[in-house]
Design a protein around this nucleic acid. Structure first.
Lengths: 333, 333
DNA sequence: TTGTAGGCGTTATCAG
DNA sequence: CTGATAACGCCTACAA
């Protein structure tokens, strides 16, 4: 069932059918109706492959994320898909994991599928070493690359991010203002936003006249139980802290569990701040104060930026939105 | 950069290039190498649209789910995408929401993209009224339709599900054995698996000689705060219960919050059982006992079944796997 | 306003 | 083992 069948049954040429299909105004109303009727009648659907072949696009965007089951990324993927669909685009989902080799491989794969653009969700895609990002900049020579929560300055790469530095800086300031002195910082990665958060922590500490202590900055796996065990271990080794700031809600949940196991009162003995304001933050007891980076806004901004790029507009390659704090019960805020 | 460029530079015909591309054995080794070298040299990538046009497939599967940010569905989407990619398929993600009209619209849309199969994730896709599922059976006349956690008997529809009936039946039995008498059942939907769970509850109650009380079966939104409020309200109205079984972890989290607010001791005053064994179940305090329906197994089974179907094998259209209980702190199990 | 014809980049069927 | 050539279904100048 193709354009020829329609043209035959409607008694017109395929060009006319194609015109009707594409809303070309140069078709008389009676003809248009005739064609439309035939299409409805035989249930005609244009073949996207043929269309893609001619136009060299299938209106498809590749969404890459490390792990779409992570609460934060899952949210992002959801909002992205929704907004893309509203704009008439389909989404190829691609979960890469955290391994560089796979990220490279999958980006290549998406490219070979001729997607119209690629969205990298989560800062885990930007490595500290510049050369490890070259596969991304190379891709940008072909199609627009959108980055969520990461920043890299390169033509045709557009980044939308939260001011993670400021958010952590502010929250640590507030903790210090309230008399906390030994603030533990838990993080999972040294990605772009990971480093931003970390330097927000460090700068706040030092600008308040405190000393940055290496053993108060702990790298953890993104796992509740394992992180709790790490905290127990550090505690046993004599590490003391009266507040925890985490780069992910999962780590903060671990801190809540830790506090409970140690019989510490939250927030009095120990204040805890999570990150992402994910669904997890409403599950713990006490409920988690968490930095909210507005995933939905982040995603909507990304898509509208992308649409402008695809329309050929000149678009700034960095958009920053501010975070705020969802204040719950693990702090005295 | 197309097959003609390669053929020219390699001094062979496009047919030969195509053969090399597709691993056709009827190519001499020297020729193969020559072609391969040229391809590498000029960085040739076959055009998937042209290929799709000829073969009428782009090796793409449509994944439909109501809301990919729901922890259970997010997990499922993740495992599906991973397994599909291993099999050489790409995934179109499509979040439909819970509205029937949209589900129909989006399924149609995926169909028009000529996906090779469609996976419906979550029982929310199967409506109680048969005619409301006709868009699904109609789709199955065109391509295989895989259903996760739902069952409908129709050619070319393949269902993979947990024995939700049995799981709830068993867990309610255990609660009764331990002396619980007023067991509250919270659910979000009357989808296929929703009804299975519900009848597991009812049958367990009545087969233990207890009376099924309508007001002990409460329909809730899939939201922690709202559900907690509903519980508070029911409590005020004088409803009494000493156990809660929920069709989703979110609802069980709400029950934990409720118990705390009421000063009830969990599990002594009130036992709570969740469903899906999602990441949430490890976040609450006390941690949630939850029925584990093995998302990963569910998804892997679905994909391997799908692959067998696409290979033209005869495959049973219903596969059931058993659940088990992740025992944590909200029960005395 | 409508129709004709060429091109998009493959794959597959025949001949040789 | 290799090459010519016809599909695949659509879009779009260019003609009429």
């Amino acid at each position: 069932m193709n354009i020829y069948d329609v043209s035959e049954k409607a008694g017109v040429s395929i060009a006319t059918v194609s015109r009707v299909l594409n809303g070309n105004p140069n078709v008389s109303e009676p003809t248009r109706q005739k064609v439309l009727n035939v299409m409805k009648e035989i249930g005609y659907t244009p073949n996207v492959f043929a269309r893609g072949l001619g136009l060299n696009t299938m209106h498809t965007i590749g969404i890459m994320c490390a792990d779409s089951s992570d609460p934060f990324l899952a949210n992002a993927v959801y909002y992205l898909e929704q907004n893309l669909r509203k704009c008439g685009y389909d989404s190829f989902l691609c979960c890469t994991g955290y391994d560089l080799i796979n990220k490279q491989k999958y980006l290549q794969l998406l490219l070979s599928k001729r997607v119209d653009a690629i969205i990298l969700v989560g800062s885990s895609f930007l490595e500290a070493a510049k050369k490890d990002n070259s596969y991304i900049t190379a891709a940008a020579d072909t199609i627009p690359v959108m980055v969520i929560n990461g920043y890299i300055n390169h033509p045709n790469i557009y980044c939308t991010l939260c001011d993670d530095y400021q958010a952590v800086y502010d929250v640590v300031n507030r903790l210090i203002d309230q008399g906390r002195r030994d603030i533990l910082y838990l993080y999972t990665s040294r990605s772009y936003s990971g480093l931003q958060k970390l330097s927000g922590y460090k700068n706040s500490i030092s600008s308040n006249g405190l000393i940055i202590q290496e053993d108060l900055m702990i790298s953890c796996p993104n796992d509740i139980t394992q992180t709790k065990d790490i905290l127990m271990e550090q505690q046993k080794k004599g590490l003391h802290f009266d507040a925890v700031v985490a780069s992910e809600d999962q780590l903060a949940v671990a801190a809540v569990k830790f506090a409970k196991q140690q019989g510490l009162s939250v927030p009095d003995d120990i204040a805890i701040v999570g990150y992402n304001n994910s669904i997890l933050s409403g599950c713990t007891d006490p409920e988690l104060t968490s930095i909210d980076n507005h995933v939905e806004t982040l995603c909507m901004t990304t898509i509208s930026t992308l649409m402008r790029v695809l329309d050929g507009n000149d678009v700034p390659n960095k958009t920053t939105i501010s975070n705020d704090i969802a204040e719950r019960e693990t702090t005295n805020f």
